[in-house]
Design a protein around this nucleic acid. Sequence first.
DNA 1: ATGAAAGCGCTAACAG
DNA 2: CTGTTAGCGCTTTCAT
Lengths: 324, 324
Amino acid sequence: MSHKITIKDVATQAGVSEATVSRALNDSPQVKAHTRQRIQELARQLGYHPNGLARSIRVQHTHTLGVIIPDILNAFFTQIVRAIEDAADAAGYDVLIMNTDEHLSRETKALDLMLEKRVDGVIITSAGGPTDYATRLGDTPAVFVDRMPPHKAERFDRVLVDNVQATEDLVTRLIDRGSTRVGIINSAVSMTATERLQGYHQALQKAGMAFDPAIEVNARTDNSNVSQMTRQILVNQRCDGLFAADNTIMDTVLHRIPELQLPPFQLGGFDDQDWFDFLPYHIVTAKQPISQIAQTAVDRLLARIRQPRMAPEEFRLPAQIITH
Amino acid sequence: MSHKITIKDVATQAGVSEATVSRALNDSPQVKAHTRQRIQELARQLGYHPNGLARSIRVQHTHTLGVIIPDILNAFFTQIVRAIEDAADAAGYDVLIMNTDEHLSRETKALDLMLEKRVDGVIITSAGGPTDYATRLGDTPAVFVDRMPPHKAERFDRVLVDNVQATEDLVTRLIDRGSTRVGIINSAVSMTATERLQGYHQALQKAGMAFDPAIEVNARTDNSNVSQMTRQILVNQRCDGLFAADNTIMDTVLHRIPELQLPPFQLGGFDDQDWFDFLPYHIVTAKQPISQIAQTAVDRLLARIRQPRMAPEEFRLPAQIITH
DNA sequence: ATGAAAGCGCTAACAG
DNA sequence: CTGTTAGCGCTTTCAT
């Protein structure tokens, strides 16, 4: 933020008042067409760039939305961001992105920064943990996407996939394709895990299969564990089906499988990836409706910005089962 | 940006002046330890959040860096961002990310927005095109990463991989692994393409192979073309080696290959991806030194922020050839 | 159609 | 150690 041309500079150069320059630059119809053009031209020549900070502090909004994601290396979130940008762009809003790398401390910092930068609203895919969003956010409008706030979630708008239905459909598909015994490696994100486990159970039940705790495991972030779990389920427990409850788990599973010398089996997971097509075996996924999730989130956020007192709501969107 | 608690509110509540509150909140040693704590506590209770805009406008910097990337769905840029964040974080700087989706108009908007938000400096991976960065940037420090500005590049700091050496090494590796005739589908990004083509030629020359224009093609953004080119080179032209000059080209190539029923062949490309391990055949890649690129970029940017008149420099970093 | 002046929230002299 | 005051760059009444 080095030495910059201000509106004052333009004003003196043009021989008018700062007010007139401001009006001219904002295309106010009050200012005579001729002088308006003259001023705009001059401003361009001088390389004038409006100071958005000063403007925002005056008009009391920034016209920008903040987006906080936990993992920018994860294609799911990256697609979410992309879709949010499209939706926000269509509504004439700017978007600022911050990545927390699944660190609570960085999420806290990210949120604080966005608040300090006075975004008009924020879309959060929480890194989980004990953050008290209610007090932290104050009255900044927020909507949660994909992952819910751990406490008092019902006080916020949230939009996410119908995890239990999607999982039920997915596991059912695995069974339809021939699996007789399908294990699960569940997500480390707690609420997501709970819901997906329920869907898993429903699918087994419908198929008349018994639950077996030995093949229901839950991932911590530790990668080697998931790798071991894969072997445990697919080899020791002789499953011919496996549901990897999320993106990152799937990744580890995929890394382990080749060295396992497995007989034919069915593999299912959440979140579609382009390159699943390249795998030497089939894979079925629950593809989340990313565009709709994003659209719903920004619609809702924008609505709340205009109408802060709206009652919070939860939006559940259906996933689509795809076989690669 | 709804109704918010200001420093004034805290001041009256605490029965002190705004200045004292400001000092207390900024941990100034000038204010008595006791009152400082009292004020900080009170601020917390009131849910006070400093207005960063007001602060920045006053102190004339934001302590934040802007990062503009052309494609957030591309893992390469995503990793770059991630590495930049780490480097910036270590230096105590915040970073704001914007994605342009390869649209010039969005890049222009993104850059303007960052300037309006008065980032202290900006790291740009240009979407290409005729943007005149010199006048657009004014005197905001900038460094270009991976893709150079189309005009007057020498007026800016830029850090990127040594494309020609990396390509030469890569293609040489392909040949070493048995390729006798290796084609190239080159990048749509012009300068990158030029350099990689040169490396390709150098490799052929060293191996005593003749160039054949029939197997030197250049991708436009049109996907179906790349798909056709793949067939053209690998089938019609009977190449037993192919160099896909970037990420997105490789993706299309990979999509086309299975249906081509090819005899053994060597495939090489830029930018490593985790899932290359899962492919049913080997692939060799030139892995860019992402962390170093990012570190160099932010080091340089920070240096330029302190010392704006430094002469611009170009930093070339070596890639690493990897076989999956 | 334009100008003068106030003020957004904050920090930095300058006084005391 | 704390208060008063001015001012960052901009927009917006209120005058004229």
